[in-house]
């Protein structure tokens, strides 16, 4: 009788906790997913400020996003890439000018596992802004090469070197260079008419960025909620 009592009480407590947690999970999960999407959209906007809409293209090795402003002219290419840092992979998002030689418009770090206080400074704009508007040959650490124009993060040479090398490699990437060269040969207007980028916004009154965000949110929520119903 005593054992049975014990089993029953433990079982009831576990049931209660499982039920309340699954309720919580269903409530919070869409928001957690949404946070991820929102964060990325916000970062994209920070990298290429005048971006209004974009088209996803996949090359052989890379996935890129072509970004257009409100007049439908191509203003930048977004590339998501990662490199092996000191503590683990560093994922970053970089905006590149659509002309040869390739130059960087803006760069943000999406995720990293570097040491807080040292390598973690890799995500700070103070370090990342150094990469903007440099030709690939200049993307070397100052202490490694006379041509280099990048100051390493104090105490985190491995991290700084990893991201600098990875960016240089990306800008010198043959496939990407060929693709962007082909873009600049084609007449810009002609090109944009041909492709017709997906216009995401429908409501003209709202600022279009928030409209994009809202659209993303609703589609995401629908996707998330539907399978559960």
């Amino acid at each position: 009788m005593k054992t049975l009592n014990m089993i029953i009480v433990l079982f009831i407590v576990c049931c209660f906790s499982a039920v309340s947690l699954s309720f919580l999970y269903v409530k919070t999960q869409p928001r957690i997913q949404l946070n991820k999407v929102q964060k990325e959209v916000k970062l994209k906007k920070q990298i290429i400020p005048h971006m209004e809409n974009f088209v996803v293209k996949s090359l052989e090795k890379l996935n890129i996003e072509e970004c257009f402003d409100e007049k439908n002219t191509l203003i930048g290419i977004l590339v998501k890439n990662s490199c092996k840092g000191y503590g683990g992979p560093i994922e970053y998002l970089v905006g590149i000018k659509p002309e040869v030689p390739l130059k960087i418009i803006g760069i943000k770090v999406l995720s990293h596992k570097e040491t807080p206080g040292l390598g973690a400074n890799v995500a700070k704009d103070k370090f990342l802004s150094q990469f903007i508007d440099k030709v690939p040959q200049e993307l070397v650490l100052k202490k490694d090469n006379v041509q280099g124009k990048i100051d390493a993060i104090t105490g985190a040479t491995i991290t700084s070197k990893a991201i600098t090398n990875s960016l240089q490699e990306l800008l010198l990437d043959e496939e990407l260079n060929k693709y962007i060269l082909s873009l600049s040969k084609v007449q810009q207007e002609h090109y944009s008419l041909q492709i017709k980028p997906q216009r995401m916004q429908s409501n003209t009154k709202k600022s279009s960025f928030s409209a994009v965000l809202e659209q993303l949110t609703t589609t995401y929520l629908q996707q998330e909620i539907q399978p559960q119903q």
């Binding site: 433990l10 576990c14 906790s17 947690l21 999970y25 919070t28 928001r31 957690i32 946070n35 991820k36």
Partner: peptide, 22 residues
Amino acid sequence: IFIVVIATFTTIVDYTIKAYFP
């Protein structure tokens, strides 16, 4: 039983922070 109760509240805090303070 204490552990189950504590773990439940910990999970609640974990998911709430994930959702509202990413």
